[in-house]
C-alpha cells in the first residue's frame, strides 16, 4: 500500500511536471477561418468585401472571368463592369442587369462571347440570395457606385424558406 502511494505521488509529480512544461510554451488557439456571415447591419464596405471573397472563392467566378486583365479570358472581363452595367440592356438598371446576369446568365450575352455560364444560384455553386447581393455590390464597386444593400429586393430572389 505504501509503495502504491509512493508511486501515485511519483506519477502525479511527473505528469504535473509535463503539464507545467505544456504551460510554458507560447499558447495560441487557432480558430478556423471565419466564414463571413452576412449580417443585416453590415456596412457597404463590408458587403463589398464579402462579395469580393465570394467572387474569388465560393462563387468560382474567377475560373472563367478576369478582373482588369489585358487579354480577356473566355468570358467577359469584369473590370469596370459597374460603370457599364446600367447601359448594357435597355430598360434595366445596373442592379437589375447584374441580377439577371447572375440568376439567368444566358438572358443576355455580351457580343463576341458564347453562352455557357451556369446559374450560380443553383447547385453546385448554389449562392444564396444575400450572397448574390454581396456579389452585385462588389461588381458595382468595380467602376461604379455601389447602391445595393442586403435589404435590396431582387425580383429573382427566392422566397425565404
Amino acid at each position: 500500500m505504501k509503495t502504491a502511494l509512493k508511486l501515485l505521488l511519483f506519477t502525479l509529480l511527473v505528469t504535473g511536471f509535463y503539464t507545467y512544461i505544456g504551460q510554458m510554451v507560447p499558447q495560441t488557439e487557432v480558430h478556423p477561418p471565419k466564414t463571413r456571415e452576412l449580417r443585416a447591419d453590415m456596412t457597404q464596405d463590408e458587403l463589398i468585401e464579402a462579395g469580393q471573397e465570394i467572387v474569388g472563392g465560393k462563387g468560382t467566378c474567377l475560373g472563367c472571368h478576369t478582373i482588369g486583365a489585358d487579354k480577356p479570358g473566355r468570358f467577359p472581363d469584369l473590370g469596370g463592369v459597374g460603370a457599364r452595367a446600367g447601359s448594357r440592356k435597355p430598360g434595366l438598371t445596373d442592379v437589375e442587369y447584374l441580377a439577371e446576369s447572375l440568376y439567368d446568365p444566358n438572358a443576355f450575352i455580351v457580343e463576341g462571347y458564347s453562352p455557357g455560364m451556369p446559374q450560380i444560384s443553383k447547385s453546385p455553386i448554389g449562392l444564396t440570395d444575400p450572397e448574390i447581393l454581396a456579389v452585385i455590390a462588389y461588381l458595382q464597386s468595380l467602376g461604379g457606385e455601389p447602391s445595393v444593400t442586403l435589404q435590396t429586393h431582387l425580383k429573382q430572389a427566392r422566397a425565404p424558406k
Binding site: 509535463y18 503539464t19 505544456g22 504551460q23 510554451v25 499558447q27 495560441t28 488557439e29 480558430h31
Partner: peptide
Amino acid sequence: FTPTLGFAAKVVS
C-alpha cells in the same frame, strides 16, 4: 478551433 498546447497538456495529463 485548435486548443492551446497548455490546454492539450492538461487533457493529456
